[in-house]
Design a protein around this nucleic acid. Sequence first.
DNA 1: TTTATTAATCGTAATATTGCAATATAATAA
DNA 2: TTATTATATTGCAATATTACGATTAATAAA
Lengths: 109, 109
Amino acid sequence: MGVTKTEGFTEIQNKRAVIFKALGHPARVAIIEMLIKRQACICNDMVEELPLSQSTISQHLRELKEIGIIKGEIEGTSICYCINEKVWNDIQMDLTQLFGSYKNTSECC
Amino acid sequence: MGVTKTEGFTEIQNKRAVIFKALGHPARVAIIEMLIKRQACICNDMVEELPLSQSTISQHLRELKEIGIIKGEIEGTSICYCINEKVWNDIQMDLTQLFGSYKNTSECC
DNA sequence: TTTATTAATCGTAATATTGCAATATAATAA
DNA sequence: TTATTATATTGCAATATTACGATTAATAAA
């Protein structure tokens, strides 16, 4: 199969899974970190810094764009990528909520 | 190839990617949410609540155990799972750091 | 002991992901 | 126009993931 079953799970569960999955690759984490550090980043700079080919990086950028966490703008012959602040904040809030909702009260395991 | 390249990325980048990846499936998100809500959970309860077979759920539990975010304790013929508080807090702190490190200063994209 | 019950593991089929070279596309520069 | 530069897309090959039934192992109940 290899197909992820989504029926039977809540919308939020599926949404969270999609976000986690999109971030679940070192190259995509590295891209996010570069964008945080530099605020914006020309695609070509990533190709030079990351240990992957241009086509592979382009694919990873597309996956990040798909969940909206980054966006790109054409700048002459290059493309300038940066974090999409609104989506970033939404994800941050959701994660804060998720991780904040656990409080250990029982001594089970 | 299907193999994730890890050389050339920092240890933290790889670590973050592993955590995100482990959480990147609706069933695993659902398991975490169940454990938060109930504090502890007998494996069989998950099998009854989730729309997946027992063997598939067992696999997902193993993936979560692999990153240490949950742990299980034998309880007679059942197994009681719960969140591993220490690992949970570590991940929470790292995510807080990651998501808190972005502040929009430029108006690029 | 025999029989249930519970959960892990194995084997397998279907599909997804990863990575790269080659090619296509788009914008500028000469 | 032609060449150059920067990205995206296509087309693989290799490997990973997902899901499930069948099997196994361990305990509990009869």
